[in-house]
């Protein structure tokens, strides 16, 4: 097992290095980070632009800039930002915001997916299954940004009907000191957007997995021993059906991040998604690289964990 884990780590580290190099070059060559200064109207003096270029190290060759960035990382220095972002401090604060959204959405989406998936499987091809499946497919087809905007308008209608602001359409609430129910008013809509995006696909995994389990011999044995269908499902079926689902959740991390980026943008949360979008908009290579580093590491670690879990559950994988 240890050898298996070391082997996986040995593959992950160079992957991270290659990803960092490719991303650095892609961002560095995608435009001129100083264009925002050159586009200012009226333009600042050329000496000012040259001075900023020097301060940011943009007067260096790109390979030197990459090397400086790479070695800086080991000293805890994420590099200078074109937009004067304190990258280290921002990463910490924004990770909290994003991970709060992602974790909350994962928990709710997982519970909803399990309930919906199990019910669908137990009523396979029945009316409930058909209706739920239809709704799930609609949810799968809905673009995240559209759902977000739609929910905002629904919230406005709701607030008008309630005569008070229950749901908020911008901000995450923490900075304005919201707590308790008011905080829920800030959290609700972005979380729902992300949940809709995610539970739909997960519920299909649970459904198909559950259908397979329901026809297994051990389930028939459990029923033959006198357990009700519900008890048999909860005590024997669910545990086996959910094993592959757990690894799916880990592997879907990148999809969740994609949804969170859109959701954060619509609801103006200052999370990692917003940091990335601003970094790209400003061609702020060090900000983009810091973001990449965090999420590439998280994705690789989660995939690694999924591999390890597979390895634990299925010895054939370890020896393959």
């Amino acid at each position: 097992m240890l050898r298996f884990a070391i082997r996986r780590f040995a593959i992950a580290a160079p992957m991270l290095f290659i990803a960092s190099f490719v991303m650095f070059m892609m961002v560095a060559f995608s435009g001129d980070p100083m264009s925002r200064y050159r586009s200012m109207d009226p333009p600042p003096p050329p000496e000012a632009i040259a001075s900023i270029e020097r301060q940011l190290g943009l007067d260096q060759p790109v390979l030197v800039r990459y090397w400086n960035w790479l070695t800086g990382i080991f000293r805890g220095d994420f590099g200078a930002s074109v937009a004067n972002v304190d990258i280290g401090a921002e990463l910490g604060a924004r990770m909290l915001v994003s991970f709060r959204l992602i974790v909350l959405a994962v928990l709710i989406a997982a519970v909803v997916a399990i309930v919906v998936g199990v019910i669908s499987a137990m009523r396979q091809s029945g009316a409930i299954d058909n209706v739920v499946s239809t709704l799930v497919f609609i949810a799968l087809a809905l673009p995240v940004f559209w759902v977000g905007v739609l929910l905002k308008y629904a919230a406005i209608e709701f607030n008008e009907a309630a005569g008070t602001t229950v749901f908020y359409t911008v901000g995450d609430g923490t900075s304005s000191g919201a707590a308790g129910l008011e905080l829920v008013g800030f959290l609700a809509l972005p979380t729902i957007v992300l949940v809709i995006n995610q539970f739909a696909s997960w519920s299909r995994y649970v459904r198909s997995s559950m259908i397979e389990v329901l026809s297994a011999d051990y389930m028939r044995l459990a029923r033959a021993k006198g357990l009700t269908k519900g008890r048999a499902v909860v005590r024997h079926g669910l545990r086996n059906a959910l094993m592959p689902f757990v690894t799916i959740v880990a592997l879907d991390f990148s999809a969740l991040v994609g949804g969170a980026i859109v959701s954060e943008s619509i609801f103006q949360w200052r999370g990692m998604g917003d940091l990335l979008l601003n970094g790209i908009r400003n061609l702020d290579v060090h900000v983009v690289m810091a973001w990449l580093l965090v999420f590439a590491t998280a994705t690789i670690v989660l995939n690694l964990l999924a591999d390890l879990v597979y390895g634990v559950l299925d010895p054939r994988i370890r020896t393959a």
């Binding site: 905007v149 905002k152 901000g171």
Partner: peptide
């Protein structure tokens, strides 16, 4: 001063009284 960097979201926030 609230920073709403996506201009599409500003009128919605105004409509919601934020």
């Amino acid at each position: 001063f609230v920073m709403i960097t996506d201009t599409q979201q500003t009128p919605i926030a105004m409509q919601n009284g934020e």
